[in-house]
């Protein structure tokens, strides 16, 4: 079960195992915070998509070979102006420069490698920090 170390509608730190119900619960808590601050539907779509992609990357790549019970840590803070998200895994780190551009014609038929592109498209800032196992993202409310 997802552990919540600190919780109010605007700010939370949540440990999430690689289980769909835990991911869904965390996303719903973030959506509730966005609702409280009257983010429009398009904003909720964007933030949820970026979170989903970051979590998939964390579990699929960061936690490759680890038990699905090993949690990823999510922290979010929602204000009337912006939403800050941080997702940290326990993996060896990730270099975003290693990801080929999936929009090149020769890569369009490759089925993987679009998560980071979508995160960058929808977020005002996406940055991998430390050894690359923590991604911080900012969404500016329209």
């Amino acid at each position: 079960m997802a552990r919540t170390e600190q919780a109010n509608p605007d700010h939370a730190r949540i440990s999430i195992a690689n289980k769909r119900d835990e991911i869904e619960r965390a996303e719903q808590r973030l959506i509730a915070a966005l609702d409280k601050h009257q983010y429009p539907d398009a904003a909720k779509f964007a933030v949820r998509l970026a979170l989903e992609e970051a979590l998939v990357n964390a579990f699929r790549h960061g936690h490759k070979g680890l038990s699905p019970d090993v949690p990823v840590e999510l922290e979010f803070r929602v204000t009337d102006k912006q939403t800050d998200l941080a997702i940290e895994d326990k993996g060896p780190g990730f270099d975003p420069g290693d990801v080929p551009d999936p929009t090149l014609d020769e890569n369009l038929t490759v089925p993987t490698g679009r998560g980071l592109l979508l995160m960058r498209a929808y977020m005002a800032r996406v940055e991998y920090v430390g050894k690359g196992n923590r991604v911080e993202m900012v969404y500016k409310k329209p």
Partner: peptide
């Protein structure tokens, strides 16, 4: 998600 796009590409 992008994983669903990947499935469509496959």
């Amino acid at each position: 998600s992008s994983a669903a796009l990947g499935a469509m590409i496959t």
